[in-house]
């Protein structure tokens, strides 16, 4: 079920575009913002609301890597794995995260705190390697800083 607040926000997005379908990505973003991810139930709710089949909406949802169709942790770590970070040794950061969190790419820690995902170039190549946790950008990363960064999020 979409909440009243979600419906109001989606209605607003629909008012800005020619057809309700055109607002489907915005609608997914709104629901993901409140639930953390897009479950099959949420997908159906959004599809019904904007007048699409679930299959059609899922083809859109699964196209975009930042629409999560599986549950994620309370915080999502996006580690840049593109070329400048490669040259500057992001693999050391990745390996440390694997060990410190005891997970690999695509996995969530047992306590539901972190999900670790690789991400394309974060556009901060002069200060590589870089990663984002939720809305926070960390750059000029060294392995030594990681434990302190990870301790900030609960």
């Amino acid at each position: 079920m979409l909440s009243i607040e979600e419906k109001q926000k989606i209605e607003h997005e629909i008012s800005l575009v020619p057809s309700p379908k055109n607002a489907c990505i915005e609608a997914l973003k709104i629901v993901q913002h409140s639930h953390g991810w897009i479950s099959d139930d949420s997908l159906k709710d959004v599809a019904d609301f904007v007048g699409m089949s679930t299959a059609e909406l899922d083809s859109v949802a699964t196209f975009y890597n930042l629409i999560f169709r599986r549950p994620v942790g309370r915080h999502v770590i996006l580690l840049c794995d593109s070329i400048s970070c490669y040259v500057m040794g992001y693999d050391g950061i990745r390996d440390h995260l694997y060990t410190a969190l005891n997970i690999q790419y695509g996995q969530t820690t047992a306590d539901g705190r972190y999900t670790l995902l690789p991400n394309c170039c974060l556009g901060t190549c002069d200060r590589a390697p870089a990663l984002m946790i939720d809305n926070d950008l960390y750059r000029d990363l060294t392995v030594e800083q990681l434990d302190e960064i990870l301790s900030k999020y609960t």
Partner: peptide, 11 residues
């Protein structure tokens, strides 16, 4: 939508 790897100018 600056996403070309190695590009950080529009930012």
């Amino acid at each position: 939508d600056e996403m070309e790897p190695g590009t950080f100018k529009d930012r």
